[in-house]
């Protein structure tokens, strides 16, 4: 039995899917992504139109967020921090709002679907390697994969060691987007599954009223933990993206 909670915008999904379903299949998570996008765009337009020298209201929050992101990324990415701020800021705001919107009953978190998170992780993966190669040049960037070898002298290239290390690092690089996306997706999905199972238990225990306190007591705890997890997972996704991109683009220090 699937513990699927009811979805408020299910009618809308069905309506859109009937129109353009042959071209692109539309599911609930895509509709929720659009809702989150609309919220972010609307907030951005409202803040942009009412931009003031002395900030008030929403502008305060956005300025604090920008400043904090810049403070966080400066030790990790050095002088590229300001260049990558739009990408990292987009990830932070989109993931945070997507995570939090899932806590509202009847709505789903877009990040509770693997497709959303793997798309973001692939963007991180591609930008890591693109800007790494752009920064260092292809040969130096590939040498970086055989990590302790470039400092050891020319003789090391005659041994099989750097070539074996290259493949080990390659597997590590390919595993990065998977771990990045699965971490976010499973955290969100398991929280929703937990809440769904508790709701199911509540309905089951309506016949045995003696046990009904169990799900009733657990739901607030799961919700509180869920809010914490939403913030922590956003922080971790952004921080790890910064670490990955920072490692690929930083200059050699010797």
């Amino acid at each position: 039995m699937h513990a699927e909670p009811p979805f408020l915008l299910g009618q809308l999904t069905k309506l859109i899917d009937e129109r353009i379903g042959q071209l692109i299949p539309i599911n609930d998570y895509i509709v929720m992504t659009w809702v989150v996008m609309l919220m972010i765009i609307a907030a951005a337009v409202v803040i942009r139109l009412g931009l003031k020298k002395i900030p008030t209201g929403l502008q305060n929050i956005v300025e604090i967020l920008t400043q904090e992101l810049l403070n966080l990324s400066e030790p990790l990415m050095g002088k590229h921090a300001r260049f990558f701020l739009p990408l990292m800021g987009t990830f932070a705001i989109f993931i945070l709002i997507s995570n939090l919107i899932g806590l509202i009953p009847g709505l789903k978190a877009p990040t509770a679907n693997w497709n959303t998170t793997i798309a973001m992780a692939v963007i991180v993966f591609l930008s890591t390697h693109f800007f790494g190669i752009k920064q260092k040049g292809l040969i130096k960037y590939l040498q970086h994969f055989t990590d302790p070898c470039p400092q050891m002298g020319w003789w090391v290239w005659l041994t099989p060691l750097p070539y074996g290390l290259f493949f080990i690092h390659l597997i590590g690089e390919i595993a990065k987007p998977f771990s990045l996306s699965i971490r976010l997706f499973i955290n969100m999905a398991s929280k929703h599954l937990m809440l769904g199972v508790l709701a199911l238990l509540f309905i089951l225990f309506l016949k045995k009223l003696a046990l009904i306190f169990l799900p009733t007591l657990l739901v607030p705890f799961v919700m509180a933990l869920g809010i914490l997890v939403c913030f922590v997972q956003t922080f971790i996704f952004v921080l790890l993206s910064m670490v990955y991109i920072g490692m690929a683009t930083q200059e050699e220090e010797h």
Partner: peptide, 27 residues
């Protein structure tokens, strides 16, 4: 705090891999 939370999250990912496998097995 920052490396601490980062380390906790990376450790937690190991459980989540197993959870992903379990969810695939169940659903």
């Amino acid at each position: 705090m920052v490396p601490f939370i980062l380390g906790l999250a990376i450790m937690e990912t190991l459980v989540l891999y197993a959870l992903a496998v379990s969810l695939i097995l169940l659903f």
